[in-house]
Amino acid sequence: MKALISVDMEGISGIVHPTETNPDRYDYERGRALMTAEANSATAGVLDAEPTAEVWVIDAHGPFRNMLPEQLDRRARLVRGKPRPLGMLGGLDERTDAVLLVGYHARAGRGPAVMAHTMNDGILDVRVAGRSMGEIGLNAAMAGHLDVPVVLLSGDDSACAEARELVPSVVTVAVKQALGQGAAVALHPEEARERLRRAAAEAITRRAQVLPLRLAGPLEVEVDLAAPFMVDLAALVPGVARGEGGRTVTFSAADFAEAYRLVLLLAQLATVQPG
Rank of each mutant, 00 (worst) to 15 (best):
residue 195 R to C: 02
residue 154 S to L: 03
residue 215 L to G: 06
residue 180 G to I: 09
residue 206 R to C: 09
residue 197 R to N: 06
residue 191 E to Q: 13
residue 182 G to V: 05
residue 202 E to I: 01
residue 184 A to I: 02
residue 187 L to I: 01
residue 225 L to T: 11
residue 228 P to T: 07
residue 233 L to M: 14
residue 152 L to Y: 04
residue 177 Q to F: 02
residue 201 A to D: 03
residue 177 Q to G: 01
residue 224 D to R: 14
residue 220 E to Y: 00
residue 146 L to S: 13
residue 194 E to T: 13
residue 194 E to F: 02
residue 151 V to D: 01
residue 163 A to N: 08
residue 228 P to W: 11
residue 153 L to E: 00
residue 217 G to W: 05
residue 148 V to P: 10
residue 232 D to Y: 01
residue 138 L to A: 07
residue 166 L to P: 02
residue 229 F to H: 15
residue 195 R to A: 12
residue 184 A to N: 06
residue 213 L to K: 04
residue 172 T to S: 08
residue 143 A to N: 03
residue 203 A to P: 03
residue 163 A to R: 13
residue 231 V to D: 11
residue 142 M to V: 01
residue 181 Q to R: 14
residue 231 V to F: 08
residue 151 V to N: 09
residue 213 L to V: 11
residue 197 R to V: 08
residue 225 L to M: 11
residue 212 P to R: 10
residue 170 V to T: 10
residue 178 A to K: 02
residue 217 G to Q: 03
residue 231 V to K: 10
residue 168 P to F: 00
residue 156 D to S: 10
residue 143 A to H: 04
residue 190 E to R: 14
residue 163 A to W: 03
residue 196 L to N: 09
residue 184 A to E: 05
residue 166 L to Y: 00
residue 216 A to Y: 06
residue 188 H to T: 11
residue 153 L to V: 15
residue 170 V to P: 08
residue 204 I to R: 03
residue 178 A to N: 03
residue 155 G to K: 04
residue 233 L to Y: 13
residue 143 A to G: 08
